[in-house]
Computed example of a mutant assay.
Amino acid sequence: MARIGLFFGSNTGKTRKVAKMIKKRFDDATMADPLNVNRATPEDLAQYPFLILGTPTLGEGLLPGLSADCENESWEEFLPKLQDVDFSGKTVAIYGLGDQIGYAEEFLDAMIVLYDFVIERGAKVVGAWPTEGYEFSHSEAVVDGQFVGLALDLDNQSGLTEQRLEAWLQSIAADFDLAL
C-alpha cells in the first residue's frame, strides 16, 4: 500500500489537474492515485500516515460543495464525515487554488478550513508557502506571514505552477520521507 494519500475537492477540474501533476512524480508504492473526496470514505483517508489535501476557494472564500453551487458534493460535505478521524501522528500538506485578482479579498481562504480541521484533530501540517509573488488584499490562509500550504493561481499565474509545485514538493520531502 502507498504511504501518501492524495485527496482533493474540485469544481472545474483544476484542483484535480494539480493532483494528477503531483501524482505523476511518484510511483504507486509511494503515493496512491488522487481521489476526489466526493468518492472517498473516512476509512480511505484514515489509512495513510501522510496526506496531501487539495482544494479550490470558491466565490467569497468557500470550500467546494453544494452551498457553493458545485454540481457535486465535495469538501463541504466530506469534512463532517471526518469528525471522528484521529489525525494524531499524521503529516498533512495542503495545496489550494484561487484567483488573486478576481477574489483578492478572500484569496485561498478555503485552505484555512482544511488546515484548522486537521490541526484540531492532531495532525502535523507542513508545507507553508511564502506570500511573495502574489497580489491579493487578504487571505485567511496566511498564518505567521505565510500561506498554510502551496498557493496556486491557475487563472492569473498558470505559467508558475510547475515551478511552484516542484519547489513545494522539495520543501515537504523530508517531512514525508521522500527522495526527490
Results as ranks from 00 to 15, higher is better:
L58S: 08
A19Y: 00
I172K: 04
Q157L: 07
A128M: 08
I52L: 03
P130H: 06
M21R: 12
S137A: 14
N72M: 10
S74D: 15
W168Y: 05
K81M: 12
F147S: 01
A46Y: 09
Q163H: 11
F107M: 14
L62D: 14
T30L: 12
G9W: 00
S74W: 01
Y95R: 12
C70V: 02
W168F: 10
D27G: 09
F50W: 06
D28H: 03
L114F: 02
F78Y: 14
V37F: 04
D175Q: 10
D155T: 14
G133I: 08
Q47A: 15
E105P: 12
P42R: 06
A151T: 01
A46M: 10
E77V: 08
G5I: 02
D144Q: 12
L66F: 00
F50R: 15
N38W: 00
G96R: 10
N11E: 15
M21T: 03
F8Y: 13
I101R: 10
E76P: 13
N72I: 01
A174H: 09
L63G: 01
D99T: 15
Y103W: 14
A104F: 01
S158E: 11
D84K: 08
L53C: 12
V113Q: 14
A40C: 08
L58E: 05
Y95N: 06
P130V: 05
S139G: 03
R39Y: 11
G59M: 10
K81Q: 13
E132P: 03
V142T: 12
